[in-house]
């Protein structure tokens, strides 16, 4: 590969992570299509069940995820510039948005369950718990990934930008999936 081509096109982070991300996007896409097929069969029931959810809370969690993505994107740029302390702070900021997201989501689940809306309360709530649950599991893995990035940035002998890029790619995927879940589960009327 020539130097010119190298600067013109570059895969950020580990290629293996991209294979995983693309596979996971395909996997979630199948879930989204299945959700839409079921929604199309009983739109009134889905709409009635959906009214129990709070779009305002979903907006707040979406803003948290977008903010986390923004911070980790800045962390990648800081890491490239050799500003490791700044990259560390930004990554810690992303971790904080992830923890806050999970706390809000746990509160939302507890609220719904305490009002009798559980996995068994019809197709809409089955999909609600399934989609948000699988997403939350990905976010939990994301927190571990961010932990690896933080460890990398703290160790003067490490600080490899590729590790920060790989962690960021995973975290952005979690954000990307949520953008679709936000619309399908909370906003679509």
């Amino acid at each position: 590969m020539t130097a010119e081509r190298e600067t013109a096109a570059r895969l950020p982070g580990d290629p293996g992570m991209w294979v995983f991300v693309l596979g996971d996007l395909a996997f979630f896409s199948a879930y989204f299509v299945i959700f839409m097929v079921h929604r199309g069969r009983e739109p009134e029931l889905f709409a009635a069940a959906q009214r129990h959810l709070s779009p305002a809370v979903a907006v707040a969690t979406t803003l948290l995820l977008l903010t986390g993505s923004w911070l980790i994107a800045l962390a990648v740029q800081a890491s490239r510039a050799g500003e490791h302390r700044r990259a560390l702070r930004l990554t810690a900021g992303t971790l904080l948005t992830g923890v806050l997201f999970m706390l809000v989501k746990a509160g939302e689940w507890a609220w719904e369950a305490s009002h009798g809306r559980t996995f068994a309360s019809g197709d809409f709530f089955m999909f609600y718990y399934l989609l948000t649950g699988v997403h939350l599991f990905h976010m939990l893995l994301g927190l571990v990934v961010l932990g690896v990035v933080l460890r990398e940035l703290r160790a003067p002998g490490l600080r490899r930008t590729a590790v920060v890029e790989t962690g960021a790619t995973y975290w952005h995927m979690v954000d990307l999936l949520w953008i679709v879940i936000f619309v399908l589960v909370y906003l679509m009327r």
């Binding site: 096109a9 570059r10 895969l11 950020p12 993505s69 923004w70 994107a73 990648v76 890029e165 960021a168 790619t169 952005h172 995927m173 954000d175 990307l176 953008i179 679709v180």
Partner: peptide
């Protein structure tokens, strides 16, 4: 939104074709 996350945040705009 999704395309901006892919292109800008994930830096796919600078990735291989």
């Amino acid at each position: 939104k999704a395309r901006f996350v892919v292109r800008c945040f994930m830096e796919v705009q600078d990735a291989p074709a």
